[in-house]
Amino acid sequence: MTLAHPAYAQLRQVTPVAAVLLENNPGMMTLDGTNTWILRAPGREECVVVDPGENDEDHLRRIAEVGPVALTLITHRHHDHTDGIDRFVEMTGSPVRAVDPTLRRRTDAGLPDGELIEEVGLAIRVVRTPGHTKDSTSFVVEGEGSVLTGDTILGRGTTVLDSTDGDLGDYLASLRTLIDLGAGRTVLPGHGSELPDLLPVAQYYLAHREERLAQVRAALDVLGEDSEVRAVVEHVYADVDPKLWGAAEQSVRVQLEYLRR
């Protein structure tokens, strides 16, 4: 029987190159849990891992057993994608490449935009997509054309922008970058199920952000330009469960910073 998402503790093949191990850490911000992606060229033993996840011994052991791991890549700094790095390196000896230098292990190499990483029969193109966080990065698997989007695009719902270093202007530009990659690309997200076509999803994300931005502008017209974040959230998200307002505050704070610039 073919596995379907969510399938915890099982390696699930999604494309000819990409398989996923779903970490059992579900939550409001992680959806069903964190996706650890394993990329392997047909006929090769070694693989590339994207986002080892949290410091969960069982999850890290399962990833390591899929190896040998030639390289580990990081989509962004959030703990649910990176807290297991040190233990994972102990298990596998894998170098870790990331935009954030504090997350790199056994290499000084970052992830410059446009670089083509050629490793164990794979060609992986770096596409910088900041906005969710400053260091957010996507990866295109050349050949099959699938795109690992981290938290820039999710398998369901929409992305919360981190209020510490997220930036709406960057995020809108990143969505346009993903749109420009074109149609027919499978989305391999950091959370949630894979999606069959990047283009309509990225277009929806962009339209949704622009709609929310217009709602925030309208709220400021009613409440006043100096309104606090919470007041704007309660106005714009009046039809949303208040339990979700905490997450909405992060995005609204980023939107207000964008507008007030």
Rank of each mutant, 00 (worst) to 15 (best):
T159H: 01
G143Y: 02
A173Y: 00
S146C: 15
T129H: 01
T133N: 12
V160H: 07
T133C: 14
P196G: 11
Y171Q: 12
L188Y: 04
P130L: 14
L199H: 05
L199K: 03
G169E: 07
L161Q: 11
T186C: 12
T149F: 08
V141L: 15
L195D: 04
A202F: 08
L154Q: 09
L161F: 03
D135W: 00
I124P: 05
V140N: 03
Y171P: 02
R185S: 04
E194W: 06
Y204K: 11
G192T: 05
Q203A: 13
A173M: 10
R185N: 04
T137S: 09
E142I: 14
L181W: 07
G182K: 04
T133A: 13
A173N: 11
L172P: 00
A183T: 10
P196H: 14
G169V: 05
T152V: 15
I124W: 04
V187R: 01
Q203S: 09
V127R: 14
G150M: 04
G190I: 09
G157D: 03
G192H: 02
Y171R: 08
Y204V: 11
T177L: 02
T158M: 07
E144S: 07
S138Y: 02
T152H: 02
G192K: 04
L148W: 02
L172W: 02
G143N: 13
K134G: 11
V147R: 01
Y171D: 07
G184M: 06
S136N: 13
L198T: 10
D151M: 08
G166N: 07
G192P: 03
R156N: 12
S174T: 05
R176S: 11
G184W: 06
P189Q: 08
P130G: 13
S136C: 13
A173H: 02
V140T: 07
I153W: 01
V147T: 07
D197F: 08
L148R: 07
D197G: 06
V187Y: 01
Y204C: 00
T137K: 08
Y204A: 15
D170F: 10
G184Q: 09
A173I: 03
D180L: 11
V201T: 15
I179P: 00
L195R: 15
G150Q: 10
I179A: 00
V126D: 10
L148C: 08
K134Q: 14
H132G: 00
V141S: 01
G150I: 14
L188G: 00
L161R: 06
T133I: 01
V147N: 06
A202I: 01
H132K: 15
P130F: 12
R185H: 15
R176Y: 00
L168Q: 04
T159M: 09
S136H: 13
L181N: 00
S193Q: 05
S146T: 15
G169C: 05
T133D: 08
V201I: 15
G184D: 08
L199V: 12
S163H: 10
L188Q: 06
G166A: 09
V140I: 15
P200L: 15
L172T: 02
L161S: 10
S163L: 10
P189R: 09
L199T: 03
D135F: 04
H191Y: 06
